[in-house]
Design a protein around this nucleic acid. Structure first.
Length: 275
DNA sequence: ATAAGGCCCTGACCGC
DNA sequence: TGCGGTCAGGGCCTTA
C-alpha cells in the first residue's frame, strides 16, 4: 500500500517524465475518483494545463501546474499513476486517462477504487488536517509528546492518524515501532520522553531507508498494491523486520513475530523485544 | 475531544 | 469445479 516512501518515489520519478508536458484531453470512467471539481467539469479544467514542479505532503502527490493549479493525487490502497504509450489500452481498472502533448498518456489505475484526484487552485482545504511532515523540524519530540498527551488509544493506531504525523501507514507504523522497541498496544499517552524520541527517530529512520529503496512492494499477485511509475518494484520489503512476517523469528531475538489487530488494522510485532 | 465502528471496493482465499 | 462467505485496508463519516 502506498505510504510516504512510495508517494515520494512517485513524485521523484514522475516529475522528469511529465514536467513541461501539456494535457491534451482527459476522460473519466469512474466519476467517484474525482473529488474536485465535479467529475463532469474535470476534463475541461485539466485540458490545456502544463505540468510544472511536483511535491508531496503526507501521502498526497501534488502535481503543480504552470497555471498555479495543483493536481492532487491520493493512491490510497491500490492506485497507480503511470505514463503509457499513446496506443496503450485502458483496462477495466483504469478510471482516469489523460492525453499528453508528446503523444503518450497518463493513466490512473486503481483496482479498489479508493484513490482520489483533485484539481484545485488552493490545496489548503484538502491538506488542512495533516500533521507535521516526518522529516520537518516541526516533528519534534516535544511536539509528538504534545499530540500524544492524554491519549489512551494504542500508539500504533495513533501513528496511523494523519493529523498526528503525516505519511505513516500500516507497514511503516509496524516497522518503526519494532525499531523503537515499543509494543504497539501501549497507550500513546503513556510513552516517556525517551520512548517518544525512539518513536520519532525510528519513524524517520524507517521512512528514510524505504525512500532510498523506492518503497515496499508486497507480492500480492494481481493485487500487487505498489509498483513504481515505470512498473518496477520497490526494494524495502526485503528489509521488513515484522510486517507480514507472522510466525517467523524476530531478527533480533528469534521469538516468533505475533500478529494482532489494532484499530482494525493488522499489526505485527515482536512480543519479546517490544515493551 | 476522543474512540470505536461502518463504509467504500475488489480479488484472493477458504471451506464445503 | 463452483460457490458463497470473509478479509484487507486509508480516510472519512457517524455514533457514543
Amino acid at each position: 500500500m502506498p505510504e510516504l516512501p512510495e508517494v515520494e518515489t512517485y513524485v521523484r520519478e514522475l516529475e522528469p517524465e511529465l514536467r513541461g508536458r501539456t494535457i491534451t484531453g482527459a476522460a473519466v470512467t469512474w466519476p467517484r475518483t474525482i473529488a474536485a471539481p465535479h467529475a463532469d467539469a474535470f476534463p475541461a479544467m485539466a485540458t490545456g494545463q502544463c505540468f510544472a514542479r511536483f511535491h508531496r505532503r503526507g501521502k498526497y502527490m501534488l502535481l503543480g501546474m504552470e497555471s498555479g493549479d495543483t493536481l492532487i493525487v491520493h493512491l490510497r490502497m491500490t492506485g497507480k499513476l503511470q505514463v503509457k504509450p499513446g496506443d496503450a489500452e485502458a483496462d477495466r481498472h483504469t478510471h482516469v486517462r489523460f492525453g499528453l502533448d508528446d503523444g503518450r498518456q497518463l493513466h490512473f489505475h486503481d483496482t479498489r477504487k479508493f484513490g482520489r484526484i483533485w484539481l484545485v487552485a488552493d490545496t489548503q482545504p484538502v491538506l488542512a488536517k495533516l500533521g507535521p511532515e516526518p522529516f520537518a523540524d516541526e516533528f519534534s519530540v516535544a511536539e509528538l509528546g504534545k499530540r500524544l498527551a492524554g491519549r489512551r488509544a494504542a500508539v500504533k493506531g495513533l501513528l496511523l492518524d494523519q493529523s498526528i504525523v503525516a505519511g505513516v501507514g500500516n507497514i511503516y507504523a509496524d516497522e518503526a515501532l519494532f525499531l523503537a522497541q515499543i509494543a504497539p498496544q501501549r497507550p500513546g499517552g503513556d510513552l516517556n520522553e525517551a520512548e517518544l524520541r525512539a518513536v520519532r527517530d525510528s519513524v524517520r529512520q524507517v521512512l528514510g531507508r524505504a525512500i532510498e529503496l523506492r518503497g515496499s512492494s508486497l507480492g500480492d499477485s494481481a493485487l500487487q498494491n505498489y509498483l513504481r511509475p515505470g512498473g518496477e518494484q520497490g526494494g524495502f520489503q526485503l528489509e521488513h523486520n515484522v510486517f507480514r512476517r507472522t510466525g517467523e523469528p524476530c531478527p533480533v531475538c528469534g521469538t516468533p513475530i505475533r500478529r494482532i489487530v489494532i484499530a482494525q488494522r493488522s499489526t505485527h510485532y515482536c512480543p519479546h523485544c517490544q515493551k
